[in-house]
Each structure stands twice: as structure tokens, then as C-alpha cells.
């Protein structure tokens, strides 16, 4: 198995947020600043890695009928650890992420990878898969947060980047900005796919045309 591919598939091709439409709630809710987005991303990477690790270790011992509750307990345990560590060492981040820290439990990406990948694979690929998916999730969050923070606050990661006289668009910091940014980002990814598919099609048509031409020519020669 190609471990590099296991990692890189989560970044763009199977990006959990922008391609598979999983984990949308935190992606919208904590993306009002890049700092929050990275905080959430790191928490999810940790929980995802640990749950994939444990699930891939115990996968043979868990009866198929009760596997989902078992996975949920494993995930909830690591989420509780994140909650306690964050409350102790990063209280400001903990306050601004608020309810979305305990809600990592119901982030579909984590249960999805436990059920869809870690329960069928050995430890190493499961961890790599978790990193790929986790980094892909973080990447998507940072993309949304970048748009929202620059337009809504004139800063990026707290650093002022907007030119003088820039009037921040408050709407981008509020709920509507999150929805609209998300919609446009998804559309951008779809458009990229379409352009790619069209290129491929043109190439195929060109080659097919070339082959028919050749066939015609060889027919004439006879």
C-alpha cells in the first residue's frame, strides 16, 4: 500500500469538507478566524489519529453488531481528553470554540474514518489516513477562515493585512458570511473538476480524431 497516497488523498481529491461534505458544522462555526480554525483542526487531527489508532488495534476483537457504540466511546474518550487539556492550557481558545469542542464527538469525519478505513486496515495506514484527513479538514477550515477573517475583520491570523481605508464587511463574520463563503468554495472546487474533465475530454476527442484520420488515410492508401 502506498502510504504517501493514503496521506495526500485527504488533502484535495477526497478532502473531507470540500469533497465529501463531512464535518460541515464545525467548518462553518469556528471559521470566523484563522486562529480558531487551526485550534479546531489540531483538535480534530489528534482525536482522529488516536481513534483510528485504537480502532485499528481492536478491530478484530470487536463484535460487528456493537462496533458503532464501541467506536463512539473510543472517540468520546479522546474528545474528553482534548476538552480537559484545552480548558487547562488554552482557556481563551476553549471559550471561543465553546460548544464545538464536545461536539467533535459527532463530527462525521471521525466516525466515518473509523468505520470506513480503520476498521479494515492495519495500524500504520490508519494513522496516515487520519493525518491526511485531519490535515485536509484543517486546510478547508483555514481556507474558509482566511476569506472570512480578511473580509470581515481586515486581518489574517490576527495580523492586519487590509489596505488603509478598508471597511470590514461585518456580514462575513456572522452566520450568512460562513454559508456564502462555503457555497462559493464548493462551487470553485466543482468548477476546477469540470475544467479538468473538459480538458481530458478534449484530449480524448483530439486523439480519437487523429486515429480516425489515420484510419481514413490508410483506407485511401489501399
Amino acid at each position: 500500500m502506498n502510504l504517501g497516497k493514503e496521506f495526500s488523498k485527504g488533502l484535495i481529491a477526497e478532502n473531507p469538507v470540500l469533497r465529501l461534505a463531512l464535518g460541515l458544522c464545525p467548518a462553518l462555526a469556528v471559521s470566523s478566524s484563522v486562529f480558531n480554525a487551526i485550534g479546531m483542526g489540531v483538535s480534530v487531527i489528534f482525536v482522529l489519529t488516536m481513534s483510528n489508532l485504537i480502532v485499528s488495534l481492536v478491530r478484530k476483537g470487536v463484535p460487528a453488531k456493537i462496533r458503532i457504540p464501541v467506536y463512539i466511546v473510543i472517540i468520546a474518550t479522546f474528545v474528553t481528553i482534548v476538552e480537559m487539556v484545552m480548558a487547562a492550557y488554552a482557556p481563551a481558545l476553549f471559550r471561543s470554540l465553546g460548544i464545538f469542542v464536545p461536539l467533535i464527538v459527532v463530527n462525521c469525519i471521525i466516525l466515518g474514518r473509523a468505520e470506513g478505513f480503520a476498521s479494515k486496515n492495519t495500524v500504520l495506514p490508519s494513522i496516515i489516513d487520519a493525518w491526511g484527513m485531519g490535515v485536509g479538514f484543517t486546510l478547508a477550515l483555514v481556507m474558509i477562515a482566511t476569506v472570512r477573517e480578511i473580509l470581515g475583520n481586515g486581518t489574517w491570523f490576527g495580523i492586519p493585512v487590509a489596505p488603509g481605508g478598508f471597511e470590514p464587511v461585518l456580514l462575513m463574520m456572522l452566520a450568512p458570511g460562513a454559508f456564502i463563503t462555503m457555497g462559493l468554495l464548493l462551487a470553485m472546487f466543482n468548477w476546477r473538476d469540470e475544467v479538468k474533465a473538459k480538458k481530458l475530454k478534449d484530449e480524448v476527442v483530439k486523439r480519437a480524431g487523429f486515429i480516425t484520420q489515420q484510419a481514413v488515410h490508410s483506407g485511401e492508401a489501399e
Partner: peptide, 18 residues
């Protein structure tokens, strides 16, 4: 075409949120 399906649903949700 790129907006069809989920993307336009999000933009509609944005309008409703407004």
C-alpha cells in the same frame, strides 16, 4: 453548472441566515 446542488444550497442558506 458548478453551483448546482450543494453549493447553491449553501448560498441559499446564507440568504436565509441574513
Amino acid at each position: 453548472k458548478p453551483l448546482q446542488g450543494v453549493p447553491i444550497a449553501f448560498i441559499m442558506a446564507g440568504m436565509m441566515a441574513i
